[in-house]
Amino acid sequence: MINVLYFAWVRERIGLPREEIETNAQTVRELIAELSAREERYAAAFEDLESLRVAVDQELVDFDASLSGVREVAFFPPMTGG
């Protein structure tokens, strides 16, 4: 089980802030493909990876990062702090 979190417009587009997902995906990219195939709202949220960022166990990573042993994955737009 992986905890998947969504923030900002990704959360709004998918319609929930977090969910637990049972998956065999080996990488973030595989997880995205799996979610996108599920329902249109996921496909819409993951349509343009250029406008998305991902964190694995609260560290920024790229989309090819491994999900081995990972507990938490978060998807969000580029950050706008400050």
Partner: peptide, 11 residues
């Protein structure tokens, strides 16, 4: 760094 690398989003 905190503008682009700290996970905040403004609406």
């Amino acid at each position: 760094y905190l503008k682009s690398r700290a996970p905040f989003w403004k609406k």
